[in-house]
Write a protein that binds this DNA or RNA. Sequence first.
DNA 1: AAAGTAAGTGTTAATTTGACAATTAAAAAA
DNA 2: TTTTTTAATTGTCAAATTAACACTTACTTT
Lengths: 231, 231
Amino acid sequence: MSKNLKYISSLLAVDCLIFGFENQMLKVLLIKRKLEPYQNEWSLMGGFLKREESADESASRVLKELTGLDGVFMEQIKTFSKYDRDPTERVISIVYSSLIDVRKFETLLNQEYEARWFKITEVPDLLFDHAEMVIAGRDHLKKKAALQPILFELLAEKFTLPQIQQLYEEVFEANFDKRNFSRKLLASKLLKKLDEKDKSGSKKGAFYYQLDKQTNHYNFNILLNLAYSQL
Amino acid sequence: MSKNLKYISSLLAVDCLIFGFENQMLKVLLIKRKLEPYQNEWSLMGGFLKREESADESASRVLKELTGLDGVFMEQIKTFSKYDRDPTERVISIVYSSLIDVRKFETLLNQEYEARWFKITEVPDLLFDHAEMVIAGRDHLKKKAALQPILFELLAEKFTLPQIQQLYEEVFEANFDKRNFSRKLLASKLLKKLDEKDKSGSKKGAFYYQLDKQTNHYNFNILLNLAYSQL
DNA sequence: AAAGTAAGTGTTAATTTGACAATTAAAAAA
DNA sequence: TTTTTTAATTGTCAAATTAACACTTACTTT
């Protein structure tokens, strides 16, 4: 294929780092390989690029294949290219990170795969260099979340202040004072308070909020400082 | 090579976005292609991965080939993979960004290439998707520089406050008040004032500073706020 | 000696921060 | 009905940080 034998060609793969937030915990979705070689090893969900497919398209396809989800937030993180990362043959992998609302697909999980959510701190040994991918993705998430209000992608349409704070604490591996946290978050004008309450977490119940799509001119740097010391 | 014809293999390339700061302006180093096809088109400096080479290694090699420089700050930015991005054959390109001190290699430029510095705002039409690469790299530089004191890589060992301010203004496309800027920057404890002055820019002369390698416990988020509104 | 030029420097009012604990709403238990 | 329990909600204040603003200084050139 290549005209020049000095240079090599390679298979192109994508691997998807799928983040979710469930039971107050940041989790990643992993699959167990059913075929040899490397049967029963846990890994990120991945796949090869098809002819005429870009990596973005391929990653979306792979994500949909596993979760049934479309139009999910997804971003390219990093490309892994060590020549022997896959001992079988040369494959480079372009890693994507996606943030999904776990409730949206719980029952849609493709039954061809054995998939499971793992707490981010309890990821098992993974295939090839996939452990590095998890680290890179997590690191990227921190930085992204410090600069942009992206973590809402992990929550349901409606969420409570305690929930979103818990999520930030998980992502940044830090604890925040709830008075200061809510003050800053609400100052962003990003959230709209609803009348309804979530009673599942406490007797008093916590008011639901949702993203206020009206306000585009928000101030998000307020969260940034809060998060900075954890970057 | 691939066992499965549904999937394709591809040549692997790296392209290097080389930033420099010269005459108070942020610039990128581009090369003019000497061979057909696409003769005389400007592009990023690039090359193909060799057997057993990772993209990181390849990018370092390519950078050295052009500039003679070793051990330069370099970071993977993004991978470009549209199937027809190179009409000749399928090639994906892993783009790297490097920050160099232009003074370090002015005379070392490899004569095989016709290379030229372009002001970042005056980049000519580029080969393939290289214009997108420049945009991605610039955006990445902004975000990186807002979180870390990385722009010093673009300056000489010794630099003046007006110089570093000019650099920040170029990168963030903004103007900063010099009193506030220097106060914040110096509060980071990152700089050491030298006795010597740079007389080239003014009659009075401006004191040189250099990075103080003693202090590791700096406070850099001070610059972050300053830059935030430009991200 | 005077003029010109860019570097360097300080103050203040307004805002934001971080540290801190009492009150409230609702359900469950007594 | 009353009391208890649990988690959500809310406010204050001193300290730190910010943004806005203009004059003085050092040196060169005329």
